[in-house]
Design a protein around this nucleic acid. Sequence first.
DNA 1: ATATTTATTTATCAAACGCTACAAAATAGT
DNA 2: ACTATTTTGTAGCGTTTGATAAATAAATAT
Lengths: 203, 203
Amino acid sequence: MAIAKKVGRPKKFDRDTALMSAVNVFWLKGFEGASMADLTEAMGVNPPSLYAEFGDKLNLYRLAIDRYASNDACSPLVAFESEPDIEKAVRAFMNEVVIYSTKHESGAKGCFLSSSVATSAGAIEGVQELLKKAIESTDKRLAKRFDSAKADGSLAKDFPSLERARLMFDLRQGLVFRARASCSAKSLKADLDQRVTMILRDT
Amino acid sequence: MAIAKKVGRPKKFDRDTALMSAVNVFWLKGFEGASMADLTEAMGVNPPSLYAEFGDKLNLYRLAIDRYASNDACSPLVAFESEPDIEKAVRAFMNEVVIYSTKHESGAKGCFLSSSVATSAGAIEGVQELLKKAIESTDKRLAKRFDSAKADGSLAKDFPSLERARLMFDLRQGLVFRARASCSAKSLKADLDQRVTMILRDT
DNA sequence: ATATTTATTTATCAAACGCTACAAAATAGT
DNA sequence: ACTATTTTGTAGCGTTTGATAAATAAATAT
């Protein structure tokens, strides 16, 4: 029933595509830095349609954060989860982080949450909570992969999954911050080997 | 000759104090999120005086970034540099990062550069460069302390100072990001011991 | 065909924004 | 005391901003 025909003039835009365009604008310019004119243009949605579909600017922002944070297809996470060998998986994750934060198709550097949304956590209602949830959820998602590796014997039974998940995620923030400051992908990969070892080292 | 009396009505504000107040406002609200009304009020400087002293909003922002980035008194760095024992120094650094990013007197969470300036690096001329310089300078400042420890024999001669400096700084970004999302200081200290070990481990 | 529904388009609105003119006030030099 | 110099305080300038009213267009239902 997803494509059930409705009465009335059809929408000219796809909701999810438009929302992702909004993410890109907010990512590049921040909440206050992104004007409604920027958004309507990038999304291909006129102001009245935008307000009817997404509510006001703040609500659109929250929806954009939610859309981005709950993206199962986040490439570093997918790389980490889909590679069977745990060492290669960790390496693939870090590698994808570098690619993602330096060469995103939208042109925006870094990560939407850590390079852009973080700012608004200081002043905009509800953003802190969204960020916190996203962090906890990512920690858990990373830890789950370590748990799988423990289950199949690739990692020791006492491997501290959650601690190393947090470590991996924190290292990621460092890379992403450097990427936002336009450090080169090459420089970000300098310490990759050592960090993979570090993340997987026995206790 | 610093306090040489000048002709004309004296200024009502101290330049550096006002600049630090501007840092706090930008830290909390971001560049576009901070209005000139917010700034003039927090700084205790009327608009005409502000423009005469600091130029326009963008110039004030650049000055604020520079003031913050070149602060020799940054408490985590000072803690790291002043503690003679290298292990205690690393621990003190991480500990101060947690305190600094969760309990700053201004009420702002995180770090001005990584939680706030990073956003504007996407759209505001010159900010990327300022950020990159601040990162490189901090990497080097941290590495210097490791070099001292190598010189006095506390660390092995082949200890990779710069690599571990980058590691320490990247881990810091992770903590700071969590702090901005209002994670508790206690939760940020959970992995402190393991991370100190990690940073100092022999190659 | 006509009515009903929904979305689009265009043109704006009031409010907030960054910024500045202007006159009063406070200092030092003579 | 008077002049020159500099900063302050107030008020308001022209834009830009987030958001909307009204008319038009495109679909389905009967």
